[in-house]
Design a protein around this nucleic acid. Structure first.
Length: 105
DNA sequence: AAGTTGACTTTCG
DNA sequence: TCGAAAGCCAACT
């Protein structure tokens, strides 16, 4: 899938859109699926073009939600039934349970 | 073409 | 467990 016409942006959006409800993926994981380590680029692209995809299902590798919309992301995740873990600093996602594996890693 | 930026990751203290 | 620094890659100017 992802034919030759697909570029990095489309690949990222495609992977994010493919994350099932209740599951999560980290920026690095998405980059890995695309065959790259550009986790930062993934975040930037989602911020720009991810308005139509479930970006709240994409979190950092340590399980903390996106730095820009953490409060909103937590609320959405909680609403979607994602297992959250309360921390002294706020909330954190249990990647160990909710991580969605897709090829590689 | 080259340098800067960024919704990141990992390692060290 | 938390905080700071270095590393990496794609897009933007």
């Amino acid at each position: 899938m992802r034919g030759p016409g697909e570029d990095f942006v489309s690949g990222v959006l495609d992977v994010v859109a493919g994350i099932p409800p209740g599951k999560l993926m980290s920026y690095g994981d998405i980059a890995a699926v695309l065959g790259s380590r550009a986790a930062r680029a993934v975040g930037t692209l989602i911020a720009r073009y991810g308005s139509e995809v479930p970006w709240w299902r994409v979190v950092r590798a340590d399980g903390t939600p996106p730095i820009c919309h953490e409060g909103q992301a937590v609320r959405l995740l909680e609403q979607k039934g994602t297992p959250l873990l309360p921390t002294p600093s706020g909330h954190r996602v249990q990647m160990r349970l909710a991580r969605h594996w897709l090829a590689s890693r």
